[in-house]
């Protein structure tokens, strides 16, 4: 009995320490974002709430700032949301369709094509960023939302996931649908998409978070401050901090950081049951 409780205690202790280790930086950032610039400058990071919560968040969200004094966090939030959602939906649409073609249409090059798509995993955006920029610039899409999202949505991972899933769908389902007079498109929309909805939800969530956290591509793509995403905005504020002669606005940077982490956290919290279901469930 004693031994058992000792196990429980040590186990919990490790878990608690781990949890503190993971959440402490977020806590400190959140607390620091509620203090004034002077306090932060004089006393450093804060572990307990200060009195400037509303003032600071109001300022970042609604008072125009940045180099051009034109961006607000709400604007950047909107841009980030567009990027996250567009990125996630685009990836899911492209990869479900690609997987559908690969699994259900027996064209000659299906297998090699799949492996070519799969091999693009070896070529992440960072590797092909110059040519991608060139292409997008050539299409006149610099500084547009389309240009921001389009080059990112081809997804080898997504295609792979959906391919594996479709392969596990019993063949008879397709045959039953054919006898029921469904054409290829109807089978996809009426049968395949509904039965993979938990899977789609899981991929959407992952991709939203990945899209939201995109940094390098939006940084290179956008020159107009109107198109900045939150993740870039944080960096811009630090830049202003180190260059300007004013008192560094650390509290704003922390507030932005908190704002930037909020949506992905909310999405995962709200949809986590779907998320887990999509990754584990195999009911067909």
């Amino acid at each position: 009995m004693l031994k058992l409780s000792w196990h429980a205690i040590s186990g919990h202790l490790i878990l608690i320490l781990g949890a503190i280790f993971m959440t402490a930086p977020v806590w400190v950032a959140f607390m620091s974002s509620t203090h004034s610039a002077e306090t932060l400058f004089r006393e450093g990071l804060q572990a307990w709430p200060g009195g400037h919560f509303f003032e600071n968040y109001n300022e970042v969200l609604f008072v125009e700032g940045g180099v051009m004094k034109r961006v607000t966090a709400s604007m950047m939030l909107w841009n980030s949301l567009l990027l996250g959602i567009g990125f996630a939906i685009g990836k899911v649409v492209i990869s479900t369709l690609a997987a559908y073609a690969i699994v259900y249409f027996r064209f000659r090059l299906a297998a090699p094509l799949f492996w070519i798509i799969f091999m693009t995993l070896l070529l992440p955006l960072e590797v092909r960023i110059i040519p991608s920029y060139e292409v997008v610039a050539g299409m006149g899409l610099l500084d547009t939302h389309t240009g921001l999202i389009l080059p990112l949505i081809a997804s080898a991972t997504g295609t792979f996931y959906f391919r594996q899933f479709y392969k596990s769908v019993p063949e008879e389902l397709l045959e039953a649908a054919r006898l029921d007079g469904a054409n290829a498109w109807q089978f996809f929309i009426d049968i395949l998409v509904p039965i993979s909805k938990t899977m789609i939800a899981a991929i959407l969530i992952i991709m939203f978070v990945v899209g939201w956290n995109q940094y390098l591509w939006p940084l290179i793509m956008t020159t107009n401050e109107d198109n900045y995403t939150l993740v870039i905005g944080i960096k811009q504020i630090y830049q202003v901090l180190s260059e300007g002669g004013e008192l560094p606005q650390f509290q704003k940077a922390y507030a932005l950081t908190i704002l930037a982490t909020l949506p992905p956290v909310l999405v995962v919290l709200v949809f986590q049951s779907w998320f887990v279901k999509g990754l584990v469930e195999s009911e067909k």
Binding site: P170, E172, L173, E175, A176, A177, R178, L179, D180, G181, A182, D190, I191, P194, I195, K197, E283, K284
Partner: peptide, 21 residues
């Protein structure tokens, strides 16, 4: 003639019911 236009109906071993309907 396509399966649907043959006007035949089939019952499968594993039933092949649409699980979401």
């Amino acid at each position: 003639v396509s399966p649907a236009e043959r006007n035949v109906a089939m019952v499968f071993q594993n039933y092949a019911l649409y699980p979401h309907m």
